[in-house]
Amino acid sequence: MDDIDREILRLLQIDGRMTATALASEVGLTVAPCHRRIKELERSGVLTGYRAVVDPAAVGLTFQALVFVTLRDRQQMLTFEDEVGRIEQIVKADRLFGEPDFLLKVIAADLQAYQRFYDEVLVGLPGVEKLTSTIVMKTVKEEGALPL
């Protein structure tokens, strides 16, 4: 990966819909080599995908909670991770060193919807010993682009 690849990645993080023509112009290449670089970044797994960013409040999802999870034992770790990966209300999940074991970001319509999700889903996840929720009051900074 060279400086041109990094610049392509930086620009795509800002605008994932940028055309190969516009990218080529920005990085000083013609379209064909720029397109080849993009395809190679995708093929090699450096560029993992494209997505639309949706305002949660605009679609009625106004409640967010951070949930700290401690497992009873490490034997359930992979089963827990697999299950969490299938649940759409969990929009981010990080495995942590030490205690707790995981940090989950959960989104819901409101407090009542979160309570139902907590009672019906979170407490039933494999191996859960302890759950601690913290309500997100305000998002100051969304997950941003990597500093390339």
Score class of each variant (00 low, 15 high):
Cys34Ala: 14
Arg37Met: 04
Pro56Ser: 12
Ala57Arg: 12
Pro100Phe: 07
Ile135Leu: 10
Leu47Tyr: 01
Gln13Ser: 15
Asp15Trp: 02
Leu47Ala: 04
Leu23Thr: 02
Thr134Gln: 12
Val67Gln: 00
Gly127Tyr: 10
Ala24Asn: 06
Tyr50Glu: 04
Thr21Asn: 14
Gly144Arg: 05
Val53Leu: 12
Glu129Ala: 13
Val59Met: 07
Leu146Ala: 13
Asp2Ser: 12
Leu78Asn: 07
Pro56Arg: 12
Pro33Met: 03
Arg37Gln: 06
Gln64Leu: 05
Glu143Gln: 07
Tyr118Trp: 10
Ser44Val: 09
Val128Glu: 05
Asp119Phe: 07
Pro100Arg: 07
Ala57Met: 07
Met77Thr: 07
Glu26Ser: 15
Ala24Pro: 15
Gln89Ala: 15
Leu122Trp: 05
Ala20Asp: 03
Leu12Arg: 05
Leu11Ser: 01
Ala93Cys: 11
Leu29Ala: 07
Leu122Asn: 02
Asp3Asn: 15
Gly16Asn: 14
Pro56Thr: 09
Thr19Pro: 07
Val53Pro: 08
Met77Gln: 09
Phe102Cys: 02
Lys138Val: 04
Leu9Ile: 00
Phe68Arg: 08
Lys130Ala: 06
Lys138Trp: 06
Ile14Lys: 15
Phe68Ile: 03
Val140Lys: 10
Phe63Cys: 01
Ile4Pro: 03
Gly85Asn: 13
Leu104Asn: 01
Met1Leu: 13
Cys34His: 04
Lys92Val: 04
Arg72Glu: 14
Met137Ile: 14
Leu111Ala: 14
Glu143Ala: 10
Val53Ser: 11
Ile107Ser: 01
Pro100Ser: 10
Leu122Ala: 04
Thr79Met: 01
Tyr50Trp: 08
Ser44Ile: 06
Leu61Gln: 02
Val106Pro: 10
Val136Tyr: 01
Arg43Leu: 14
Val53Tyr: 12
Leu66Ser: 05
Cys34Tyr: 02
Thr70Ile: 05
Ala145Leu: 11
Glu99Ser: 14
Ser25Leu: 03
Ala145Lys: 14
Val69Lys: 06
Val46Cys: 02
Leu104Cys: 07
Gln75Ser: 14
Gly85Tyr: 09
His35Gly: 00
Lys92Trp: 08
Gly28Met: 05
Gly16Gln: 13
Gly124Asp: 07
Ala108Thr: 03
Arg74Leu: 10
Gln89Glu: 15
Ile90Gly: 01
Glu81His: 03
Ala145Arg: 13
Leu104Ser: 03
Glu26Gly: 01
Arg37Ile: 02
Lys138Tyr: 12
Ala24Glu: 03
Val46Arg: 05
Asp101Tyr: 03
Gly45Phe: 09
Val106Thr: 06
Glu129Arg: 12
Lys138Pro: 12
Val106Trp: 06
Val67Gly: 01
Val140Thr: 07
Ala108Leu: 03
Pro126Arg: 08
Met18Trp: 10
Gly60Leu: 11
Lys130Tyr: 06
Val31Gln: 15
Phe117Gln: 02
Arg116Pro: 00
Gly98Phe: 14
Ile107Pro: 00
